[in-house]
């Protein structure tokens, strides 16, 4: 090879990337494992000369900590609700988009819009849409100045206004708001990937099915879904990974209290928990981060295993 004389050159080109990766990626991996295994580790007092015993105390402590379990529960609940819902909706939309000609491009653009938004900023818009202004919600002297546009729509169809996110709102109502926002946010990416997959399916399969007089539903379940399964698997896996890292969409709606007024932290997630203990209790934060990594790893492996069995390449 021509370049064999200058092997050092490759390392020169790679040097900036490698140096930065060593400091900001490789060292953190090692250090996180180290801190998680030093019981009750705190970097401030570590600098002051404190020593820590080695063990799995951080993991035990985190797993016995109610607040952590609550964060874990919130994260899992949001994942389990939003990933299937957004995937099914995205699949429906993609299949419909693929079936039309006029307006296809315009609709495609509209469906991609939420992708290019700032999740904190648009979270504030959703909060405004669900926000009630007034006092004594549900009480005797209830005064409601504005019920919020979502409640206006519900009332228009004859329903009752719901206290979605304000003081005194129920956990279920909070979760509904989060699910709506997260699904809305997750759709564009999924639609883009699934539509791309649909457009690359060979038309001959559909022609053959038409000649055989196959019913629409059968075409969908026997041709479209199997041939789309690699994309579906990809969308589900990334959906779960993103779902377990849910954080800023909750900040967008509820602010950094991570819950409605009067119940701060009610909707906090795993990532939120890590950030809360990051500057003071690094041992605990590291243990939580490794647990998060473990969960993401296991879920990804399960997904890959299932999709390997079910996917048709």
């Amino acid at each position: 090879m021509v370049e064999s004389k200058h092997k050092w050159k490759a390392w020169l080109y790679l040097a900036p990337a490698i140096v930065l990766l060593l400091i900001f990626t490789v060292w953190p991996i090692i250090n996180t494992v180290r801190m998680s295994l030093l019981e009750g580790y705190n970097s401030m007092s570590a600098v002051g000369g404190a020593t820590y015993s080695f063990g799995i105390g951080n993991f035990k402590q985190v797993l016995e900590y109610n607040y952590f379990l609550q964060c874990l529960g919130n994260t899992m609940l949001l994942c389990v609700l939003t990933v299937p819902l957004s995937t099914i909706l995205a699949l429906l939309i993609a299949v419909c988009l693929n079936a039309i000609k006029p307006l296809q491009r315009l609709l495609q653009t509209i469906f991609f819009l939420p992708y290019v938004t700032n999740s904190i900023a648009i979270g504030m818009v959703f909060a405004a849409m669900f926000n009630m202004v007034g006092s004594a919600f549900g009480g005797e002297n209830e005064i409601i100045i504005t019920a919020g546009i979502i409640n206006n729509v519900i009332e228009f169809f004859g329903g009752h206004a719901v206290n979605w996110i304000n003081a005194g709102s129920s956990y279920a109502a909070n979760v509904v708001v989060m699910v709506v926002y997260i699904v809305w946010n997750a759709l564009p990416f999924k639609i883009l990937i699934l539509l791309g997959g649909l457009q690359s399916i060979n038309r001959q399969y559909y022609d053959a099915a038409r000649v055989d007089g196959t019913s629409r539903r059968r075409v969908f379940t026997r041709i479209t879904v199997p041939l789309l399964s690699p994309m579906l698997a990809y969308v589900v896996i990334t959906g779960f990974i993103g779902g377990f890292k849910e954080y800023s969409s909750i900040v967008g709606i509820f602010g950094e209290d991570m819950g409605p007024a009067g119940a701060p932290g009610r909707l906090n997630t795993m990532v939120g928990f890590i950030y809360d203990s990051l500057s003071t209790q690094q041992g605990r934060a590291s243990a939580a981060a490794l647990i998060l990594f473990g969960i993401i790893f296991v879920v990804t492996m399960i997904n890959l295993y299932v999709s390997k069995k079910k996917t048709h390449y």
């Binding site: 990626t25 953190p28 801190m35 377990f244 890292k245 590291s286 990594f293």
Partner: peptide, 9 residues
């Protein structure tokens, strides 16, 4: 690896 793991360090 989730980015949060790096953030602590």
């Amino acid at each position: 690896i989730p980015g949060e793991l790096f953030t602590i360090t």
